[in-house]
């Protein structure tokens, strides 16, 4: 069963007087529980494709379906809700909220959901931080954590809402190889346990070892699927 389907996906950006054709018609179907790696050179359209799949950007043409929902037909409020409830994000630069502690950063998406008790939220956030090996750092702010620790917090934050899909844009790009590997192990474990679909964009050949499927992008088009 496909959790994500894209049909004729196109994304153009105006850049000064020219237009950048970042994605030029991508049809893609991703099965639930997959670990898909999107690879390709810089400027090939990986991040743009990830943004479109993650519903944080709107396509110039084409459709994105998450489960049975055609995302391109939804208004901003519903798309935001869909992101909150079904998609988790892990950013290359971690993107934690600097004024919140590690624990609060993880709690944050669940608080936005507004249908869990504070105790439940705290319990789940603490559990996830324990799972990623940060039980002792819950009260630390991002500035007080290393890069690897920050990325673990970001993973915990991405998983706290129990999403169907986790999108990770170059998740190991800012990490050393050992830390990167441990992060990827953690993700694979989550995938095995909860059937969470992981989609990475990466340059890193080590990351590919963890992928069940790989899509290569070149010049905004799928060059090869494996």
């Amino acid at each position: 069963m496909n959790i994500i389907e894209t049909t004729g996906l196109v994304k153009d950006y105006p850049l000064g007087k020219t237009t950048v054709h970042a994605v030029r018609g991508i049809d893609l179907a991703i099965a639930k529980g997959d670990i898909l790696s999107i690879i390709g050179p810089s400027g090939s359209g990986k991040t743009t494709l990830l943004n479109l799949i993650g519903c944080i950007d709107t396509p110039t043409a084409g459709r994105v379906k998450i489960g049975d929902t055609d995302v391109t037909a939804l208004d901003d409020r519903r798309v935001t809700d869909l992101r909150l409830h079904r998609i988790g994000f892990i950013f290359q630069t971690f993107n934690l909220i600097p004024v919140l502690t590690a624990l609060e950063n993880v709690e944050f998406p669940m608080l936005l959901m507004k249908h869990h008790s504070r105790a439940e939220i705290r319990r789940r956030a603490q559990q996830l931080l324990e799972d990623v090996g940060l039980a002792e750092y819950v009260q630390h702010r991002p500035a007080e954590l290393s890069g690897g620790q920050r990325q673990r917090v970001a993973i915990a934050r991405a998983l706290v809402t129990d999403p169907d899909i986790v999108l990770a844009d170059e998740p190991t790009a800012n990490l050393d190889s050992v830390t990167g590997a441990s992060i990827l192990d953690a993700m694979r474990e989550m995938n095995a346990k909860q059937q969470t679909t992981f989609i990475f964009s990466t340059h890193d050949a080590n990351v590919l070892k963890y992928a069940k499927n790989i899509v290569k992008i070149k010049d905004g088009l799928i060059a090869r699927e494996a």
Binding site: F89, N95, I97, R157
Partner: peptide, 16 residues
């Protein structure tokens, strides 16, 4: 701005 992008991506509504 990037922080705004992050919270919006995570699921914070425009009004919030």
């Amino acid at each position: 701005t990037r922080e705004i992008g992050t919270v919006r991506a995570i699921g914070m509504q425009q009004g919030d």
